[in-house]
Amino acid sequence: MKIPAIMYKEFKEYLLKPGSISWGVVFPLVFTFAFIVRFGDIDHLAPGLISISVLFATTSFVSSSIIFERRLRTFERLLLAPLREYEIIIAKALVGTVFGFFVGVITLLSLIEFMVYPIESVPLTLTLITFGSFAFSLFGIWLGLYVRNPINVMTWLNILRLPMMFTSGAIESLTLFPAWFLAIGLLTPLTYLVEGLRVSILNYYELFPLGDSLLGLTVFSLLMLLLSIKALKKLY
């Protein structure tokens, strides 16, 4: 009952906050439409564009809520309650996952109109969007808790996620770049969602098969969960 209660509160309190709307909905959708207008080959861009939408939606939503809660000290409400750290983090990550899932699906629906080939597997695509949303939500939570001054969280978030659009191969294939850039790509969590969606939407991959994508996102999620718990303990 505690985790659903936190989730309900998060949606009611933060869904319409400017940070969630501007970076979480407007930016990814405008970005997607810009590519639709400019380029014809939407099929090959779809995995990258959906991944970028999910990344921005989830990280913006969860970090926005953490920024508000830390500044207004409502975060202490959760810490004063008989809750374990992981319960707080999982609840926030699930809210981010739901938000990211919807933004990801809206992006997907927008792209389908302009795609030539049908999607290879819709259930697998939705599963991957869910996996990615969860992983990136945890990333946003970790950063929201790790940065000491909450005012700076959004800045750090952009410093980290904007380069990911390129280092993940979301827009341009990583196989076109030198080996050192490919190494950076393998360390970029977004790469694993892009590669996974390539399989589920287009039925091919460039770097590794679907299993590795799921494994990469799972490992990244666990790492972010542990780091978030550590950051939360250190912060208070």
Partner: peptide, 16 residues
């Protein structure tokens, strides 16, 4: 929480 009503805030706390 500002966006929650008084009752919603109390219900939320009760659930925690």
């Amino acid at each position: 929480y500002d966006e929650l009503t008084v009752e919603e805030n109390l219900r939320f706390t009760a659930r925690l």
